[in-house]
């Protein structure tokens, strides 16, 4: 989409606020609607927008696919890792109360961490899926729409 000047300018302006909003949704999920999953999707949308409006190569340079794949695994590991940490701290699997001296604080840390795990995996998976779809040769050309 090299010919859409307006699109390119507008998206350049849009991407930073989208990322910021994703972070807000990620860390504000305890208080209002939102959480790791929604944040992950929004975070990924910023990258997908960049990939669509500029080019897949630009996006590849910004976030190499093999690194994104590692993040796909990382998020799930963070989540499950919290559970394992709880085991070592003497609780049941995913019993966040063990994470701090007082159960309520422990719950809070636990939720924050697992939501982070959710967000990372969701964002990375969405970006990976975009990479996978976008790098297949299309049969319908850009101009045919």
């Amino acid at each position: 989409m090299h010919h859409h000047l307006i699109l390119r300018v507008v998206s350049k302006m849009l991407i930073p606020p989208i990322l910021l909003y994703a972070l807000y949704v990620q860390f504000h999920g305890d208080f209002g609607p939102g959480g790791g999953f929604q944040a992950g999707v929004i975070f990924a949308v910023a990258f997908i927008l960049y990939g669509i409006v500029f080019s897949l190569d630009h996006l590849r340079r910004a976030v190499p696919p093999h690194i994104v794949r590692r993040f796909v695994a990382l998020g799930l590991l963070i989540y499950a890792g919290v559970g394992v940490a709880n085991l070592f701290l003497g609780g049941n699997f995913l019993d966040y109360s063990t994470l701090a001296h007082d159960a309520k604080h422990g719950q809070h840390y636990g939720i924050l961490l697992v939501e982070l795990g959710v967000g990372i995996t969701v964002a990375a998976v969405m970006i990976s899926i975009f990479f996978a779809f976008a790098s297949r040769p299309p049969t319908i050309k850009d101009t045919d729409w």
Binding site: R69, R70, V72, A73, L77, A80, G81, V84, F93
Partner: peptide, 22 residues
């Protein structure tokens, strides 16, 4: 004592590890 959770969680953790090491 945690065998019930572990027998599911061990393969669940192993799966992302495979991807991580590659």
């Amino acid at each position: 004592a945690h065998a019930p959770a572990l027998q599911t969680v061990v393969p669940l953790i192993a799966a992302p590890l495979c991807v991580l090491f590659g």
